[in-house]
Design a protein around this nucleic acid. Structure first.
Lengths: 183, 183
DNA sequence: ACAGCCATGTAACTCGTTACATGATTAC
DNA sequence: GTAATCATGTAACGAGTTACATGGCTGT
């Protein structure tokens, strides 16, 4: 039953549990607007190869629509496999690849202006990411109440917004601590 | 000059700029106590193969100590390559792989108790990670002032502590929002 | 007609992991 | 003496990326 899949495989299955039958292309778009904030946005090629694996194992079924395009739908077994994964295996601790923190660690190798510029740029990028996510969140309004289809996605989106706010606060605080020192 | 390296390569070079000559083994230990919080802890085998590449390119030099063990020291060229990387290339936005958020997204596939247990466990793991990092941070006290060797590492450690605190706050808030609903 | 999006895939490659193997030194 | 730690590597493999290739359909 519960053969292991790469987490990205479960993630794709998860995206297919919100009611729609999606093409590989559409799946990529969904991943780009939501999953990328707290997981990754897989490359197109990976989506297709992962879909092939899921299909091999009977976890998704491809149905050709009128125009001949393959639309993927999660099967009962697929639903069961995701459920089992969620209940039987621990989630694991987040992995963060934070190039800003990594470079800050080596701040002694450059001048303070370079580090400050990096942090300021990060604050701007955070603001842009926050705007994108806020837009996604706004699109869920009206379908985000407990019991509704997008309740959990809205919890996740709010998590992401709070995370971005926190990062911006921390980056600004670090900037203040740096300018307390010399140039 | 500035051939590209995997970021982990630059990270290892960075760890070698704090004054010591380190063995591969020691490098792994340093990575485990600090880098793992905001980058990754590379496997031993990767550290050795990465050191081989850095050595090939003349960015580190191996010197055999009295017992015959290889200790690695960053070269002037290595120092220059890191500096160039930091000043000439953008840091890039952090990549987060957050299995807790990913599973929360699919909360509709399990019962609320499972999701709550996951969040509670995450809060505990955050507390443990925070304790570990606080210990590291405490070890820097006295060498963490501006201009001192571990000023930047201490800024990064404080960043990490604030991040863990923020995550714990967000997870607890999510738990409250969930228990506002039914069981 | 041409640009841009929709749609799907293959091939080559890199990063990074786990498993395996080996042996020296240190602590109890 | 024997367990743990120090130390270094090889081999097999998997996930995921970029580059490349193809072709239909849609709007202007």
């Amino acid at each position: 039953m519960g053969q292991d899949l790469p987490v990205t495989g479960y993630a794709l299955l998860g995206l297919l549990t919100f009611g729609d039958e999606l093409t590989g292309y559409e799946l990529k778009q969904r991943a780009d607007i939501t999953m990328r904030f707290y997981w990754v946005s897989p490359a197109m090629s990976q989506i297709y190869s992962e879909l092939a694996r899921l299909s091999d194992r009977g976890l998704v079924a491809a149905v050709a629509d009128d125009s001949g395009t393959s639309r993927y739908r999660i099967t009962d077994e697929g639903r069961e496999v995701v459920r089992e994964w969620m209940t039987e295996t621990p989630a694991g601790f987040p992995v963060l690849k934070h190039p800003v923190a990594l470079r800050l660690l080596m701040g002694h190798l450059t001048d303070a202006a370079t580090t400050r510029a990096m942090l300021e740029r990060y604050v701007e990028e955070l603001a842009a990411a926050r705007r994108d996510l806020a837009e996604v969140r706004a699109g869920l309004v009206g379908r985000d109440e407990p019991g509704q289809n997008f309740h959990h996605p809205s919890l996740v989106a709010d998590w992401g917004l709070a995370y971005f706010d926190s990062e911006a606060r921390i980056a600004r605080r670090t900037l203040r601590r740096m300018s307390a020192d010399g140039p």
